[in-house]
Computed example of a mutant assay.
Amino acid sequence: MPHGLGLGTAGIAGLYTEVTDEQAYEAVSAAWQRGIRYYDTAPHYGLGVSERRLGAVLREHPREQYTLSTKVGRRLEPSSDGGDDLAHGFAVPATHRRVWDFTADGIRRTLDASLERLGVNRVDIVYLHDPDDHAEQAFREACPALEKLRSEGVVGAIGAGMNQAEMLTRFVRETDVDVVLCAGRYTLLDQSALTELLPAAVARGVSVVIGGAFNSGLLADPKPGATYDYAAVPPELLDRALRMQAVAERHGISLRAAALAFCAAHPAVTSVLVGARSAAEVHDCADQFATPVPAAFWQELRESGLLPAHAPVPAEDPS
């Protein structure tokens, strides 16, 4: 399973704004330089652009030295409609269209296409990608298909990646997943995964990867106009983030460092993914992840009501 800091690669595929091949190459190369060895991608990210760009860098390194995950559930089909993909969040040409497909055949075809774009013959982890509205097919068809791929050695581990905790808890309890990717639901601003998902993962021995540590931007740089869960931030959450930032500044750290440290502190969590679109952002995330957060910071957060007392923090026994 992946450990430590990982790189999420939606950003290098032009999430919201255009990113060049060169910028993407430099970002992934910087991640490797900083010792990051877990890379997560998906066909959805830039209609395959993320996988191609990531593969171009990783093929320069020995396959056994890194952990690679991609996702299935959105199959890409060629499209001649033209235009761009900004309706889905990516500043790339709309060369393909996404088709929801959690059938056994769709899973295998989608993974085969990903392997080709990445230039590898296997991935370490494959996640079901956002099966929110396709639960029945995901549990009935996709999970058995992933188990078969795992038994064949095409993938090392299987799981699901979602922006919610409830269905991920069901995957942990009812299926034979090895790992789940939970985005945005275990952060300084949202601990909903703490109620059931994380305890269930500990009980079942399932690894948890946390994505969205900054809640899509708010915790990275809280200010009016910031985004929270890919939308405009509600005023009360902006106020909460600004108060947290003031506490962080009093203790000589950044809110980014605290956000990453918090995600990594729970015993179920094996890795925290950060998204970056440039080498500078990668270096900043690596610096923040390596920054020790003083115990007095966590104490002040709790005393001011900004963090629940039962949420584990670094260097503290979570039991």
Rank of each mutant, 00 (worst) to 15 (best):
R53A: 06
R53K: 10
L54W: 03
L54V: 03
G55L: 03
G55Y: 00
A56R: 15
L58Q: 01
L58F: 01
R59D: 11
E60H: 15
E60Y: 11
H61D: 06
Q65D: 14
Y66H: 08
T67A: 04
T67L: 06
T70C: 02
T70E: 03
V72R: 07
V72G: 00
R74W: 06
L76V: 07
L76M: 04
E77Q: 13
E77K: 14
E77W: 09
P78T: 07
P78V: 11
P78Q: 07
S79A: 08
D81I: 15
D81L: 14
D81C: 13
D84Y: 01
D85F: 13
L86Y: 02
A87K: 12
A87D: 15
G89H: 10
A91E: 12
A91Q: 09
P93C: 05
V99M: 11
W100Q: 13
D101C: 02
D101G: 04
F102I: 03
F102Q: 00
T103F: 05
D105H: 12
I107L: 08
I107N: 03
R108M: 03
R109M: 13
T110S: 15
L111T: 06
D112K: 14
D112R: 15
A113G: 13
S114C: 06
E116Q: 14
E116M: 06
E116K: 15
L118S: 07
V120H: 05
N121M: 09
R122E: 11
V123K: 02
V123T: 11
D124N: 09
D124M: 02
I125V: 12
V126S: 06
V126W: 02
P131D: 06
P131C: 11
D132S: 11
A135Q: 15
Q137N: 08
A138L: 01
R140M: 05
R140S: 10
A142S: 14
P144Y: 03
P144I: 04
A145S: 03
E147L: 12
E147D: 11
K148Q: 15
L149A: 04
L149I: 08
S151C: 07
V154I: 14
V155Q: 03
V155W: 00
I158W: 01
M162W: 09
N163Y: 10
Q164D: 13
Q164H: 12
E166S: 11
M167H: 06
L168A: 00
R170T: 10
F171M: 07
F171P: 00
V172C: 00
V172M: 01
R173V: 08
T175N: 00
V177E: 09
V177L: 01
